[in-house]
């Protein structure tokens, strides 16, 4: 499968990494020059410590100052490289669901809803709908800590989706789920992303994730490694 035709114009839809290179103390860590079309998945594979999550942090706007990054990030024709994280609308999923423990399940979603959804009653309604969407109708008032691992993963997904993200950044989001659940959640995430026509960047070290993504895979070399091709 070929990637969405690398566009020469910057106003193409989707997420485009234009000659992105990240270095730590002058040592190259990770490089990528790719366009991810809406609804498509770019998988970044590599062992832990290889800097693949660093790439994700750069795109999300959280890169630690210890790193140096070159290149530009374009989202739906807009250069977001210098935008604060709040303006990028990245949809983040980590290997831990990281539900805010002091809020209810529904409160987590309401917190994520954009401000233009009003009034409060409507916001709660939207959150409840989103929960129903991931098979968790009636879970609004539950304490996140009382949910099972699969349920927490679904809430985390619903929370990202209601925030109306422009693209998704997935940091090994399935690695802590057990095997049966993993396939199920993985399908759910990819289905929703495709349905909402979101470009997805997936970071993983699990080949099954890459296979299920049905997209382009780039490999990142291990930190001191001499083998493996850097994108």
């Amino acid at each position: 499968m070929t990637p969405a035709a690398p566009s020469t114009t910057s106003d193409a839809a989707g997420l485009r990494l234009a000659d992105v290179r990240i270095t730590l103390d002058g040592r190259p860590l990770v490089a990528a020059d790719h366009a991810i079309a809406p609804g498509e998945v770019l998988t970044v594979m590599g062992p832990s410590g290889s800097g693949k999550s660093t790439l994700l942090a750069f795109i999300g706007g959280f890169l630690d100052p210890a790193f140096t990054a070159h290149g530009r990030i374009w989202c739906a024709g807009r250069d977001i490289t210098d935008e604060p994280p709040q303006a990028r609308h990245a949809g983040l999923l980590f290997q831990d669901p990281l539900l805010f423990p002091h809020m209810s399940v529904g409160g987590n979603l309401v917190f994520a809803l954009p401000q233009h959804v009003r009034p409060v009653a409507r916001r709660k309604e939207r959150a409840a709908e989103a929960l129903a969407d991931v098979g968790l109708a009636g879970f609004f008032d539950r304490d996140p800590d009382t949910l099972s691992g699969g349920q927490k993963a679904r809430v985390a997904l619903a929370r990202v989706l209601v925030s109306e993200p422009a693209f998704m950044l997935l940091d090994e989001p399935f690695s802590k789920l057990d095997a049966g659940l993993r396939a199920q959640i993985r399908r759910l995430v990819f289905d929703r992303a495709r349905a909402m026509r979101l470009p997805v960047l997936l970071v993983t070290h699990d080949q099954a994730d890459a296979d299920a993504a049905c997209g382009v895979t780039i490999h990142v070399a291990p930190p001191e490694g001499c083998e493996g091709s850097g994108a």
Binding site: P84, Q86, F100
Partner: peptide, 15 residues
């Protein structure tokens, strides 16, 4: 404190 919570909140648009 796990700073990823803040990353998520920021990505969700929180100031």
């Amino acid at each position: 404190y796990d700073r990823r919570y803040e990353a998520i909140a920021a990505a969700l648009g929180a100031t």
